[in-house]
Design a protein around this nucleic acid. Structure first.
Ligand SMILES: [Mn+2]
Ligand SMILES: [Mn+2]
Ligand SMILES: [Mn+2]
Ligand SMILES: [Mn+2]
Lengths: 220, 220
DNA sequence: TGTGATAATAAGGTTAGCCATAACATTTTT
DNA sequence: AAAAATGTTATGGCTAACCTTATTATCACA
């Protein structure tokens, strides 16, 4: 049917929408930000995607993926996260860099290669950053966790996933041991959008609130 | 120094030149043919590559890689052939399709990933098609074999490499067991550019002369 | 309810790689 | 040496994604 190959740009826009908010709508300006593109360019591209039936844009209300668009996005995420696993587990590439390298490979990966890779890896369910890997049909179980930025002081939590994508942010979190599987406790929350103080691996670290929004945790 | 990333198109032109004739020069029309592009387009691109110091174009005499251009081409070939190994040996993808899939991945592969892949694969020296994999510094030992199309009737030879890249050609050769490592004998050569008759694995097969030019062999 | 912030459009440009068609130059063949 | 084949260049066009600057529409809140 509709299986003409999508451009890298198209795939990245759709993936970005899915990553920013899978269920609700995403402001075009957020998309522009994430993709390092001007608002005007993002608007143009969103119009094109709309014409192809991949997104729905309600002006002033944001963009949403259509069924078709969500399908493509899931598939890109599948390729991306499978490659993340390969790069991390088999090529021993550093955790913080894996996203970036996988983000190039994802666009150069045919369906047959994707599925062969999944078999090779043993059908993993989550990527090194803790996010679920969509199945071939696009389905996946969303994480049920909360943002670290929303947790109350005194709570002990376990990190489920890190949703950042920029290498420098990932590196920053890695250096502070804020990684999937680690346990931590919120020691203090400074007022006025101030940083959190966390106890991680018996050390105290400060973490800005905007960074804490990248971290998904569950109470333990 | 000069390590701005090359476009996919640039990499493909340089690789095509290297594949068509590594040492001598290549007619721009052959390049156009290989890349499925018009002569005019290939000429334009060759001009651009010349301006960047990647090739030298002597009008009516063909294009040659400069030192810089050959460096890039070797590197693309390294990535390509390492991916071929991975796809074939680890993902179990069919021999005839591996070139094509690797040809997409090669452009999406950062140096660190390339080297990690080489380590993972155990620094292989040849790709599944029998061609040498250039080292990180671009060096490699050229095959010393002859074209199957040049072999005299009655000679027994071993296939060293298959230089085709199109999937349908590779599939055709694979079906006839003309694969690296196989031994075969030239039974007959029809006159007037006619087909060869070969004995392969105890069966006789006919092979057109133009296809025989893709096959590199050594006498045994 | 108005005003300032935010979002969208309009208009005009750029670049890389492609295309076709036509003119011109060189090489190869007869 | 002329004709045919092949290669090159000149022109003019196209598309996808980008850009800037200016204008207009809508939303949010004081
Ligand atoms: Mn990407
Ligand atoms: Mn390629
Ligand atoms: Mn315009
Ligand atoms: Mn032009």
């Amino acid at each position: 049917m509709n299986s003409k190959p999508m451009s890298e740009s198209t795939e990245m826009y759709l993936k970005a929408i899915a990553e920013l908010d899978d269920r609700n709508s995403v402001a075009v300006a957020r998309l522009a930000e994430r993709l390092s593109v001007t608002n005007v360019s993002a608007n143009e591209m969103v119009r094109r995607l709309g014409e192809q039936g991949l997104v729905l844009h309600k002006p002033y209300k944001g963009v949403t993926l259509t069924k078709k668009g969500r399908g493509v996005a899931s598939n890109v995420l599948r390729r991306q996260r499978l490659w993340e696993r390969f790069l991390h587990d088999h090529l021993k590439i550093e955790w913080a860099q894996v996203y970036d390298y996988a983000c190039s490979l994802e666009h150069a990966t045919a369906p047959e290669v994707t599925e062969a890779l999944a078999v090779f890896l043993g059908h993993p369910e989550i990527c090194p950053r803790g996010n679920p890997i969509p199945a071939e049909d696009g389905s996946f179980e969303p994480l049920d966790g909360i943002l670290l930025s929303e947790v109350e002081v005194g709570t002990a939590v376990r990190v489920l996933a890190v949703n950042a994508t920029a290498t420098d942010v990932l590196k920053y979190l890695q250096e502070r041991n804020i990684l999937p599987g680690r346990e931590l406790e919120i020691v203090e929350a400074a007022p006025m959008q101030g940083p959190l103080t966390l106890r991680v691996e018996k050390k105290e670290v400060a973490l800005g609130l905007s960074l804490a929004k990248f971290v998904i945790v569950e109470p333990i």
